[in-house]
Design a protein around this nucleic acid. Sequence first.
DNA 1: GTCTATAGGCTGATAGAC
DNA 2: GTCTATCAGCCTATAGAC
Lengths: 226, 226
Amino acid sequence: MQAQAGERVRGQRDAEATKEALLDAGSELFATHGFDGTTVDMIARRARANKAMISYYFGGKERLYEQILISTFSEVGSRIETLLEGSGSADEMLRAFAAMFGDLAARRPHFPAMMMREAISGGRHLSERVLPVFRDMFVKVRRIYEQGIEEGTFRPVDPVLTHLVVMGSLLFFFATEPMRARLIADGGLPVAQAPQPEAFIANLQEILVRGLAARPSPAAADGPAR
Amino acid sequence: MQAQAGERVRGQRDAEATKEALLDAGSELFATHGFDGTTVDMIARRARANKAMISYYFGGKERLYEQILISTFSEVGSRIETLLEGSGSADEMLRAFAAMFGDLAARRPHFPAMMMREAISGGRHLSERVLPVFRDMFVKVRRIYEQGIEEGTFRPVDPVLTHLVVMGSLLFFFATEPMRARLIADGGLPVAQAPQPEAFIANLQEILVRGLAARPSPAAADGPAR
DNA sequence: GTCTATAGGCTGATAGAC
DNA sequence: GTCTATCAGCCTATAGAC
């Protein structure tokens, strides 16, 4: 009959903190080494927890991985949902989507690599709880291109093919950032410094908006005066 | 029962055929399941060879993998080299590069996934024999954008950032083809049929050439035709 | 060259002490 | 809730038969 206020015992790591640490450690390791390349020992060590805790809290390595996927994809899905509620021209929404993806990758640095790995592996771990989120994301972003074509902002491109260009560019850039950082540091690539995410997003936005435009470009439009 | 003339007794096909079978089986399995997700048993079974042959011919699983990487990347490198020897406007070369990549992915269906996996893993298996090929590829394709900017065909975009858009789109499309095939077959994606590679390449070419163009677009150019 | 048998190490999971 | 100790199973590699 104690007070229901969530007063927490401090000075010692509680269950919630251990779960969190395992989720964080797992995210990083699964993203970098893949599911099979990551051992429960690695996860436990990085989380400074005992490996028995993985079974205790999540029911095993596989279910920890699934939990991470669900949590990550759900956040991505809700962010996109929020974004697409706002209205605007297809240009603006496409730019906003790319920018949002950049923010998301900064907040969830392991999401792009995990998604890419899942995709390459045929979506083997995309269970019935993860797949709907994934599918909704696709459907909603596709609407941007469809809307752009309907309103005459975009050429009549194939929305699916275009979506693949956008997602491929974004996921690839963020999933391969660690590799570029490593190669450039080692002098393995003839580039002064690693490309910055903001610059990449800006470049992609320009290419897409100009590349999809129904009319040449805003600056040089020769269409009829309105 | 008698042995048929001209047919090899099972277990006595020649060495070259066995090596080839192991390389082929390894390519497919490593691309689909990754290095850690593939066991020598899986490779031997698919190649209809004994798993001891992997050590016998290649010196172990790791060295088989490296051999596959080197062979694949070398072909890619020489194809690009040949392509870039031909001259033409940057538009034409960029289109040709995308088309060549499509051909390459058809001939070497496991190259995109393997390259993507390597990139996500930080290039951990890119040994000193593979890395130069990889770097050369980057340097040579980058020349296309630099040339386009110099000759005034392209806007003054950042060649590195642009290269990442191109490679990301191409690798992503081909590396994730199996996943789309699976999801569409299962009704997991609201798409009638899987996008065709030729259509994807064509769509990408249009987006890139228009998106990079210094002048609005060829069709609506307000300047004199070249 | 191919195959069988097995060695030796690592993996994920868990019972039981605290 | 956390940790140690331990187990059964699977992994790669290889010695030796044919």
